[in-house]
Design a protein around this nucleic acid. Structure first.
Lengths: 251, 251
DNA sequence: AAACTGTTTTATCGGGCGATAAATTAATGC
DNA sequence: GCATTAATTTATCGCCCGATAAAACAGTTT
């Protein structure tokens, strides 16, 4: 026979030796309480995933589980507020402005941008919530990526055209877009290594940044001019050509 | 009153108009059944996450839920077999051999390696399971990354030293390791874009591959010689120096 | 100090989960 | 054809989940 898993009704047979959390007896103003709930929920769900229980979350807050439902209609509501907090409210309009500030050389702008972007994004909480949401296929994730593309990467492509003296009315080609995603991915992957893999204590972000930017600036001239030339010649879409990985496209 | 959620006992009040799954009436040999379970479980968990229920999995298999427990002692056991199937059994020893085949130029070896590695890794099932496991902090994930480092990336570093005529007994420095992770990450991130983000129909892997390899081959000569020189001079660890992202290390 | 207001807790519901035991039934050997 | 074996299903168990209603109570007003 097992060591008596639990009594018929009693839930907390005894405060488990140590009461690790603050014995909250004070009452909070609704706004403060709600803020605290969203904050702690972000921390909690980023570690445990969104399938983790509301009772465990409440325990970490030092309150009882039904209290959560005084402030949020449902668990989903709470999670949506976490998304808002983590994604939307962290976005900085200065990023786009930095990228488009033609009073500075493009390399410097890209460096400045990533130096501001990285601290906002490459922390454990943001990264984990991003991937938890991404694996669930939530639209908030898709929308975030669209925003990165439209407000950061496509502007970079425009700036690159200007830098190369190739400005024109053609929409950014897929090749130009792919190249700028390569730079972005090189930097972003280092965030994954540090925050998701945790296989390294401290990534050398400066090496990553400068290497990725160098790569972009080095590859862009030839690739962009070719892409524009092809587009102007009326070739609607540069065929992916499929080199050694052609067999992958069908996956 | 609700439209009668469910009768007191009956579970399947009626075959929900269409019976979408094969009406399995045949019995399978235990080995075949087990293989099918692991296969479908990999597919299922890669989509739904490991928190998804065994009943839903059984439904997709066209069997009842308790049958799973005839073949696996617990859900965790089943998941472990999924890991084994997805991770371990996909590894190819030829990868390391390709990297170390000094009869070919290094660039060609790297291209050949990634052309073989990419199809094995960059598919939805593998990628999603990798991140689901990674977010849970499972050791299987950590061990996989260690294997990538020890059997693929560190050998690349050794080959690069040989290519540059800088072979020595010094262990691979952190700078050399970081650089090769940059190349790897550039390629890997494109897999994330395609399989996790699903924001693009088909990544141009050939562009990614060649750009990443170019970057590595271009940056390595200076960086590797400097790193070795520093190490030989007795500088135990190249200080991360902290450029514009210095404030990140404390996060 | 008594009454009131609104935050927090206690108690509980229906449902889904992982897992087990017993009953069913398809295949095999005689 | 009948008995045996083993794959599969039926019927449950105890537990935890999200959510709700009612009781308790802290802080404020009068």
């Amino acid at each position: 026979m097992r060591p008596c898993p639990n009594m018929p009704v009693m839930d907390k047979p005894a405060p488990p030796p140590d009461t690790p959390l603050a014995p909250r007896t004070v009452r909070m103003a609704p706004d403060d309480r709600k803020r605290e709930l969203v904050d702690k929920a972000a921390e909690f769900f980023s570690e445990e995933g969104f399938d983790a229980g509301t009772r465990q979350l409440a325990r970490q807050l030092g309150v009882t589980q039904p209290l959560i439902y005084r402030y949020f209609a449902s668990k989903e509501d709470l999670i949506n507020e976490v998304y808002r907090k983590v994604y939307v409210s962290q976005w900085q309009d200065s990023w786009k402005e930095t990228i488009q500030d033609r009073s500075r050389p493009l390399r410097q702008r890209l460096q400045a941008f990533y130096c501001s972007y990285a601290p906002a994004i490459f922390n454990r909480r943001w990264m984990r919530i991003f991937f938890f949401a991404g694996l669930k296929g939530l639209d908030i994730n898709t929308r975030y990526l669209a925003r990165v593309r439209d407000e950061l990467l496509l502007p970079m492509c425009e700036e690159m055209r200007a830098e190369l003296g190739l400005e024109c009315d053609l929409p950014i080609t897929q090749a130009e877009s792919e190249l700028v995603w390569l730079m972005h991915g090189t930097v972003f992957y280092q965030g994954i290594r540090e925050q998701i893999y945790r296989s390294v204590t401290a990534v050398d972000y400066d090496l990553a940044l400068n290497t990725a930017i160098d790569m972009y600036l080095l590859k862009a001239p030839e690739l962009v001019s070719q892409a524009i030339a092809r587009a102007q010649a009326g070739i609607t879409d540069p065929p992916p050509t499929g080199g050694c990985t052609a067999h992958l496209t069908g996956l």
